[in-house]
Structure formats: C-alpha cells, structure tokens
C-alpha cells in the first residue's frame, strides 16, 4: 500500500487495573489507505475502542509505533496532538459527547472556531442542515433525542472536513431506525468528502458496508475477511 493514512506497527497498550496491569492491545500491525473504509469488529473487551482511541491520539501506546498521515503520534505532546486532531480528524462516539452547555449550532461551530475559521457559524449551520437539523440549531443537547444528538455529533465531526473519520459504535445507543439513518449519513458524508473511515461496530451489516473488515479478539487482529463474510456475524 503506497502512502498509508494510518500505519500501526506492533502496537501495544497496557492499562493499570484494580487487579494489576491489563494487556488491552497485544501487538497490532495494520495499514489503512487514503479514502478506505475499515470496519473494526469483535466481541466486547477485544480492544476495538482502545485501538480507535490510539488512532485518534486520545490514548498513548505503551509499545510499538503509530503513524497517522505520516506523523508519529508518540512524538507529539498533548497540545500538538490536539492541533493534529483539529486539522485532520473527526471523531464520533457512542455516547455522543456533546458539550451540554453549548447549543447544537455552537457545538458544531466549536472545532471550526478552534481552527480559526472566520465563517464558523455559517458553515456549522450548513452542516446541521445537511444532517436534517436546521430547525434545531438553538437547542441544547438535553433538549434533543439520542438520534438528534448523534446527528449533531456527526455534523461536528465532519464540519472541518477531516481527512480521517473515526467512529466508535456510533449507533450503539440508538434504536434500529435511528441507527440506520445515522449510518446512511456517515457513509453519505464520507462518500461526499472522501474521508478515510474507521468504524468500530458490533453490527455485522454495518461492517459489511465498509471496504475492509478487521476482526479483533483478545487484543489481537484475526486474519482479515471479505466484507460479505463479515456480514454473517461480526461479533462471533
């Protein structure tokens, strides 16, 4: 693969637990090319979300190397990582993680403002329109349903036009109809803006919509499978 967006080499993560250190990731090596979509599947506790956190620079590896867009994340300090995310990444969480004191519009505008965009509010409004929430710009997160909150989170992640979109079980807290609508939006936005997508999911049919499916178990990668195979049971 030429010029990978994400390059992981023998990546390891050990966290301190109540009963001693826990090896969460045990030597992960993989690469993701520009514009690719990768579905990350596996049972609970297999290390999917932790791997995604490492890709986003939200966690630091205890071993191995991780390079994103050619930059070694381990070499960056907290602030450099924040700037790197601001300029290159959008992240969507299962629990939405909107700032409760900001309205929908302000939540979406915030990363643009942090990047110094002069037209942050106008772009945020357009982004909310794109996810069907043009009428709810001045609502606070607590005044919106889970589905609406996740659409705001998606608009926020996509607003700066990131090269990489990381999504951690974005439909995990939603009912089937809302979940499907969110996934349609994610793939539509990715197709429109050509971002590289890494999607952590329990749902095999969602993983099957990706270009590649990577299965994890016990902190390690299983041999890759074709998306069609994955559709039969992402979680087994």
């Amino acid at each position: 693969m030429t010029d990978p967006v994400l390059a992981l080499d023998d990546l390891r993560l050990t966290l301190a637990g109540g009963a001693g250190p826990v090896e969460v990731l045990r030597g992960i090596s993989m690469q993701v090319g520009r514009g690719q979509s990768v579905g990350l599947v596996g049972p609970s506790g297999s290390g999917k979300s932790s791997l995604l956190m490492l890709m986003g620079g939200l966690e630091r590896p205890t071993g191995g190397r991780i390079s994103v867009l050619g930059r070694d994340l381990a070499a960056m300090d907290e602030d450099a990582l924040a700037r790197f995310r601001r300029d290159n990444m959008g992240i969507v969480f299962q629990s939405f993680h909107l700032i409760p004191t900001l309205t929908a519009l302000e939540n979406v505008a915030l990363p643009l403002e942090l990047a110094g965009a002069g037209d942050a509010m106008a772009r945020a409004r357009a982004e909310l329109d794109a996810v069907g929430l043009g009428a709810r710009t001045h609502h606070y997160p607590a005044e919106m349903s889970g589905g609406e909150q996740q659409r705001v989170a998606l608009a926020r992640a996509m607003a700066p036009r990131p090269a990489i979109l990381l999504a951690d079980e974005p439909t995990g807290n939603l009912d089937a109809a809302n979940g499907a609508a969110i996934m349609d939006l994610i793939f539509a936005l990715r197709d429109r803006h050509g971002a590289t997508l890494v999607l952590v999911t329990h749902a095999p049919e969602l993983a099957a919509r990706c270009d590649r499916v990577v299965r994890m178990a016990d902190g390690q990668l299983a041999p890759e499978e074709a998306p069609a195979e994955a559709a039969t049971g992402a979680d087994q």
Partner: peptide, 16 residues
Amino acid sequence: AREAALLKVLGASRRT
C-alpha cells in the same frame, strides 16, 4: 474533566 477531554478531542490546546 469531561469538557476538557471533549475540547481536546476537538483540537483545543491546554492553554485554551
């Protein structure tokens, strides 16, 4: 703590 973490996710430096 949650707000600080989210702001970091969105690209805010610690000084900000």
